[in-house]
């Protein structure tokens, strides 16, 4: 009698809660790649990773193909060792190149992969050898200033 109505309402309540969590997982957070079975790791070493963070996207031609799994400093070479988890459906050749790019002028940093021409593909755990580091804005400005100053010094010297 009275109890069954309460049971019904509590059932509706809990079902709503489960539906809400499912909605949050599927529609709000994208619960798509990430699982280890559908991805394989690649390693790339950079001189400077700038502001790259773990979980940053890995894109090829602008399409997300994976994520940055881990970033650590190699104790021998003192270069940054970045582990990427790439979706299994995308294979890259051995001379693929990786660079750290920025979306927009001040946006988040991500890794861009450019496919090479070598017929052999990188195996899981393979190392990407062609890498270019992040562009650090301060260094860029520094370089620009130096070259500007050198040009400024050079001209009067040539005139004399």
């Amino acid at each position: 009698m009275k109890r069954t109505t309460i049971d019904l309402w509590v059932g509706v309540f809990v079902a709503l809660g489960i539906a809400a969590v499912v909605f949050l997982s599927l529609k709000v957070a994208n619960l798509v790649p990430a699982s280890a079975e559908q991805t394989y790791p690649l390693v790339a070493e950079f001189d400077n990773i700038g502001g790259l963070k773990a979980k940053a996207p890995v894109k090829s031609a602008g399409v997300v193909v994976g994520r940055v799994a881990a970033i650590e400093l190699d104790a021998q070479s003192y270069r940054a060792k970045v582990t990427l988890q790439i979706d299994k459906q995308f294979q890259f050749s051995r001379d693929v190149s990786a660079e750290i790019l920025t979306s927009g002028l001040l946006g988040e940093q991500y890794i861009g992969l450019t496919q090479g021409g070598d017929p052999d593909n990188l195996a899981a755990g393979g190392r990407i050898t062609l890498t270019s580091s992040a562009v650090v804005l301060e260094q860029l400005i520094g370089k620009f200033m130096t070259s500007f100053a050198e040009k400024g010094d050079g001209k009067p010297a040539a005139a004399q």
């Binding site: 969590v21 997982s25 529609k27 709000v28 957070a29 990430a34 979980k55």
Partner: peptide, 18 residues
């Protein structure tokens, strides 16, 4: 929706919130 999905992480946002 896609901006939302890119920004939200299941573990660190949804699960931690719960």
């Amino acid at each position: 929706w896609s901006q939302m999905q890119n920004a939200v992480d299941l573990h660190s946002d949804v699960v931690n919130g719960l």
